Simulated assay, not measured.
Amino acid sequence: MNIRCRVVLLWVGLWLLSGVSEAQILHYPAQPERTDAPRLLIHGALDPPLIAPVLEDFHRRQPHIDLTYRNLTTLEIHRAFLADEGEKNADVVMSSAMPWQYQLANHGYARALDDKAAREWPRWARWRRELFGITFEPVVIVYRRELVEHFGKVANHGDLLRLLEDERDALRGRVVTYDPAQSGAGYTYAVEEARLSPRYWELVTALGGVRADLVGTTGEMLKGLASGRYLIGYNLLGSYAQDFTRTHPELEIVVPNDYALIMQRLVFLSRSANNPAAGQRFIGYLLSETGQGVIGQNTPLGTVHPAFEGPGSAVALRERLGEALRPIRLGPGLLATLDHLKREALLDRWEREFQRAKVGRDPHAYTREQP
């Protein structure tokens, strides 16, 4: 094995957070190995199999940089950054928790990049020159193929609502979605859909009517769908679903044709980076045609760069779905999702609507515990 591409995958105790036992680390040593090599630390909420092709290609091009990637949850990334552990603090922060990333940049924690790639990045995918959306990932519906055999196709939110209402008994306990109280992604999607669709709350009531399971990650949903526990999952992250379904042909992905939320993974260079030059070089790579090409060809994440028009790219999805695409806006509106009172109000309504269909029907109706 070429030593420059050597990857050490370690399971180690997470040194920043109490109550969290493990973190995944990918380490690409500098070549030739030396004690004075520039060290680049990246914190990312992206599973190693998905980000590894990007890191490997960057390291092949910049072998003199000692590169470490720590895979954390979105909440761990946010807390770890605010903990400000000096040398342990990340140089580059990459997360799908768009409101938290925007909040950090808006509060002055991100360093502006003044290069051609940053200046020319699409305006809809950046905030000033400090925060950059590097992927284009639809939020999708996933179902087992036998669902179609019994109930017909589900192409959009209206189809899903009718299915849940018409087949309540058949689907009871066979549907899964995010719990917005325990998932930052699930909460963000709930906020966006409540703005977008006048029938969103009907859909939440219908999910409650079939006693949908509420979980914290797309991975949990996919695992339950593959095992046959669930027949249909709502609001899964499309990139993870696409990667998973390659080895699970019994599952089908649907990008809703009425409206489809688009999530972006946002990256910034920390203002307190220990190695800002190496961090800027990495972000420049992510924004380049080269880096975006690796994302588009070797991962299911979807490209932003306008030069790419293949499957999964922003250009291709816009051509196919047009105005149905609803990218989550990168701007001050994201901060509203972090307001404590607004959060509590939305979660309270979500709980009421979810329970509404069961009122008067089941004296032992399930009640979700609040965190």
Results as ranks from 00 to 15, higher is better:
residue 341 L to A: 15
residue 315 V to E: 12
residue 322 G to N: 13
residue 146 E to V: 10
residue 319 E to N: 10
residue 110 A to V: 13
residue 99 P to W: 01
residue 141 I to L: 14
residue 100 W to T: 05
residue 234 Y to D: 10
residue 94 M to K: 04
residue 163 L to T: 01
residue 138 P to M: 03
residue 283 I to C: 05
residue 205 T to C: 06
residue 246 R to N: 07
residue 322 G to H: 09
residue 84 D to V: 05
residue 129 R to V: 08
residue 301 L to E: 04
residue 159 D to I: 07
residue 107 H to R: 13
residue 230 Y to E: 00
residue 99 P to S: 04
residue 251 L to E: 02
residue 224 G to Q: 14
residue 273 A to P: 08
residue 89 N to V: 06
residue 323 E to R: 14
residue 182 Q to H: 05
residue 339 D to G: 03
residue 36 D to P: 10
residue 1 M to L: 12
residue 187 Y to C: 06
residue 312 G to P: 07
residue 91 D to V: 04
residue 192 E to I: 12
residue 83 A to E: 09
residue 190 A to G: 12
residue 120 E to T: 14
residue 175 V to K: 06
residue 110 A to P: 12
residue 100 W to C: 08
residue 59 H to L: 13
residue 243 D to F: 10
residue 348 D to Y: 09
residue 186 G to R: 01
residue 324 A to R: 09
residue 191 V to L: 10
residue 171 L to Q: 05
residue 39 R to F: 12
residue 169 D to S: 15
residue 17 L to M: 09
residue 261 L to G: 02
residue 124 W to K: 12
residue 258 D to I: 06
residue 206 A to I: 09
residue 274 N to Q: 14
residue 102 Y to Q: 11
residue 161 L to T: 05
residue 125 A to Y: 08
residue 140 V to I: 12
residue 140 V to P: 09
residue 262 I to Q: 03
residue 171 L to K: 03
residue 342 K to N: 13
residue 132 F to H: 04
residue 114 D to N: 14
residue 362 D to N: 14
residue 195 R to L: 13
residue 84 D to T: 05
residue 146 E to Q: 14
residue 155 A to N: 11
residue 127 W to M: 07
residue 105 A to F: 02
residue 134 I to K: 00
residue 36 D to Q: 03
residue 300 P to K: 00
residue 327 P to W: 02
residue 356 R to F: 08
residue 165 E to V: 10
residue 139 V to P: 10
residue 209 G to M: 06
residue 73 T to C: 06
residue 76 E to H: 05
residue 18 S to E: 15
residue 348 D to L: 13
residue 126 R to N: 01
residue 200 Y to E: 13
residue 158 G to N: 12
residue 206 A to W: 02
residue 330 L to A: 02
residue 134 I to S: 02
residue 176 V to N: 05
residue 200 Y to C: 08
residue 30 A to R: 00
residue 7 V to P: 00
residue 189 Y to M: 11
residue 26 L to F: 00
residue 117 A to R: 06
residue 243 D to M: 05
residue 196 L to S: 15
residue 180 P to G: 04
residue 109 Y to A: 14
residue 72 L to W: 08
residue 168 R to E: 12
residue 259 Y to C: 09
residue 227 S to V: 05
residue 27 H to I: 13
residue 42 I to F: 00
residue 244 F to K: 01
residue 192 E to P: 13
residue 292 Q to F: 07
residue 8 V to R: 07
residue 132 F to V: 09
residue 100 W to E: 10
residue 50 L to S: 11
residue 249 P to C: 05
residue 68 T to P: 02
residue 163 L to Q: 01
residue 283 I to D: 07
residue 347 L to W: 00
residue 137 E to H: 00
residue 145 R to A: 15
residue 304 V to S: 04
residue 272 S to Y: 06
residue 268 F to L: 11
residue 148 V to R: 13
residue 288 S to A: 07
residue 266 L to K: 00
residue 57 D to F: 10
residue 275 N to Q: 15
residue 14 L to M: 08
residue 253 I to M: 06
residue 357 A to I: 04
residue 24 Q to F: 14
residue 245 T to S: 07
residue 204 V to M: 02
residue 196 L to W: 15
residue 359 V to L: 14
residue 315 V to H: 04
residue 74 T to S: 14
residue 144 R to K: 02
residue 48 P to D: 12
residue 77 I to A: 01
residue 107 H to M: 11
residue 283 I to Y: 02
residue 85 E to F: 06
residue 115 D to V: 08
residue 96 S to L: 09
residue 161 L to G: 03
residue 49 P to N: 03
residue 24 Q to E: 15
residue 166 D to W: 08
residue 275 N to C: 13
residue 15 W to L: 11
residue 89 N to L: 12
residue 156 N to G: 04
